[in-house]
Nucleic acid binder design. Structure first.
Length: 289
DNA sequence: AGGCAGGTGGCCA
DNA sequence: TGGCCACCTGCC
């Protein structure tokens, strides 16, 4: 197995190791690990693409694909390189919201990945009532057992068609627990509905969210995560226990349930609420560790 | 040893 | 609508 040449990730800009770690391993994606050969390198997989990412001395980002790999456009899309994240961030209400500003100053240049929708949906079904290491383990178990081995020890996510032919019991063997029946049911549905992802991508936020929430195991939080991290819809505002805690404290929302807090977030932060969420989320986690 | 974790669905008033 | 509680599993 050989790697291609390192190259610059265009339109990305510089980013600190701390923020890169938050971006790749902070709960947006569950498919990145430090490279075995060098802990300063991150290795990740999406679709059939294996890639590594590292810093230049000036904190510019470099990446490389496997030798012969040419999926540069897919990598750019994955990292959101076609969007101006400085501008998006500047559009958040940080001038009037000191807590938001503090979060943005703590994790400068943090952005939102745009991951393949199917894998994102799968990951966040697995995420319910689990912590990051366990979620990663589930993704790994399923990919190992039913995906394609791309290089030694690295497996692609198998896709809904394959998962549709897998029994619930086999998924339980992958430590999915009660989530196995949701994955089975969704796989059955989506294997027959090839244009589901395209529809979600093309619909507006509200309609796309309703469509997702018709799937078993998909509530508000999972739907928001899928739309934010897998469809680039930045108005999505996922409210998990971290954000709930942070929002209650910062904005004095005692006794508000997560649905109300999600609404508050979308109103308060505006059309890029999901980006604000990511800043607050990162800081909340950091403070609690 | 029992409670809880980056939720959701079902049941009950 | 609003409030519980079971659901797998692993970790404290």
């Amino acid at each position: 197995m050989e790697w291609g040449e390192w190259q610059e990730l265009p339109q990305f800009g510089s980013i600190s190791p701390k923020v890169l770690s938050e971006l790749l391993d902070g709960g947006q994606s569950f498919r990145w690990e430090p490279a075995v050969t060098d802990q300063r390198i991150w290795q990740g997989v999406f679709q059939d693409i294996v890639l590594q990412v590292r810093h230049q001395p000036d904190f510019q980002l470099n990446y490389r694909l496997l030798a012969g790999g040419a999926e540069h456009e897919a990598v750019r899309t994955y990292f959101g390189c076609e969007r101006n994240w400085d501008l998006l961030s500047d559009n958040l209400p940080w001038r009037s919201d000191h807590e938001l500003k503090a979060s943005m100053d703590t994790f400068p240049k943090l952005r939102i990945l745009k991951q393949p929708l199917g894998e994102t949906l799968f990951s966040f079904i697995c995420s319910t009532a689990k912590q990051i290491p366990q979620i990663k383990q589930c993704c790994l178990n399923v990919s190992k057992r039913f995906g394609k081995e791309l290089i030694s020890g690295v497996y692609s996510w198998p896709g809904w068609e394959t998962l549709a032919s897998v029994t619930e019991m086999e998924l339980r063997d992958c430590k999915l627990g009660y989530r196995a029946k949701y994955i089975s049911a969704i796989a059955q549905t989506l294997a027959r509905e090839q244009d589901f992802e395209t529809k979600i991508q093309n619909k507006g936020f509200d309609e796309a969210k309703s469509m997702l929430m018709e799937l078993p195991g998909v509530g508000e939080k999972v739907a928001d995560c899928v739309l934010l991290f897998g469809a680039g819809k930045l108005e999505a505002f996922p409210v998990d226990t971290w954000i709930l805690k942070a929002m209650k404290r910062i904005y004095n929302l005692e006794n508000w349930d997560s649905g109300k807090v999600a609404h508050f977030g979308r109103v308060h932060f505006g059309k890029y609420a999901g980006l604000a969420q990511q800043f607050l989320f990162a800081r909340e986690r950091m403070l609690s560790i």
